[in-house]
Design a protein around this nucleic acid. Structure first.
Lengths: 178, 178
DNA sequence: GTCCCTATTGTTAGTAA
DNA sequence: CTTACTAACAATAGGGA
């Protein structure tokens, strides 16, 4: 007689039931960090991971240290930070990793940063005039983007969509309560 | 007669042979990003990953966008928590420093990871309320929109997303054939 | 560096604390 | 949010292209 059903195949879509989703997150986050740790040990790679849980908490993994990698990446990849940060941070070279839950982030700040990025996107594609009738600013430039731009573009879209959906929920709530 | 030896158990220490280490890194990095993607889809978490290969190249994964998460984390961390002792960081303290020649990002690889994410994104069945409308939507703050405007906004977002995804497929095809 | 192929190891869904 | 248990599923070491 089998004691449990064992592992079941699940669909790759959002788990709606809260408890199941919570458990899955906890287990898989552990698994993810373990995998990362193994890669570091086996290949000598450096890895940093940020995870923002559905509940809004931050988890970070870093080998050797998350901040160092983030800084290096941002300084190298994003010009906006290059002027404000110098790479003189403490690097360890030691073989330790950290798992730390951090408190919730400020949503307003999130929005501000998001808006700033959208502004950048806007400037990048401002060749198209903003008119109220037909084509918008995004129609043409997309064809001329390279992969890097496309990635940023799409990610920005996802962010924007989230913002809009959030706002939608707000409006619906207000309408219902009033 | 067995055709291969199948998967073998390996010791959790650095792989000394260059080729084996290289292959392991490649495979496991792919696996790591896939795991991360799955967590995002299943639980709605936000994840950003930085990997610096033994060869010194950067690989990034981000859902929704690595930069945004890194930025949020660094700002949040430096501003509010650097002075508190609540967080025990696994920081070992040595200092390596100096102005290292930073490795350049391999956009091809970057793209590959991105396209994986896109596949997951495509497969995901997401709620997308839609009504028709095509006026230019980008100038107005989301916070001031009413329900009708929000719906048009979402519609436009979906259209734009389609355009970007189409363009992404084009680029992908080009890259593969060359 | 990536992809294919298998046999094998490793991860995790369901469930209950 | 984390953890223990077990059976089933998924990732991957080797080896070769």
């Amino acid at each position: 007689m089998k004691k449990t059903k064992g592992r079941q195949k699940i669909e790759m879509k959002k788990i709606e039931e809260t408890n199941r989703r919570q458990v899955a997150f906890s287990k898989r986050r552990t698994g993810l960090f373990k995998k990362a740790s193994e890669i570091c040990v086996l290949t000598g790679a450096e890895i940093a991971i940020l995870v923002s849980s559905p509940g809004g908490r931050f988890f970070a993994f870093g080998h050797p240290n998350p901040d160092v990698l983030f800084d290096r990446y941002l300084n190298n990849n994003n010009k906006d930070y290059a002027t404000t940060n110098n790479i003189t941070r403490a690097d360890t070279g030691a073989t330790k990793n950290s798992t730390l839950p951090l408190p919730t982030i400020n949503f307003n700040q999130h929005y501000v940063e998001f808006s700033r990025e959208l502004e950048a996107e806007k400037k990048r594609t401002e060749t198209t005039p903003v008119s109220s009738g037909g084509s918008c600013w995004f129609d043409k430039p997309v064809d001329e983007m390279d992969m890097e731009e496309l990635q940023r573009y799409l990610c920005s879209l996802e962010e924007l969509k989230k913002t809009v959906l959030t706002r939608t929920d707000e409006v619906m709530t207000i309408n219902k309560s009033s």
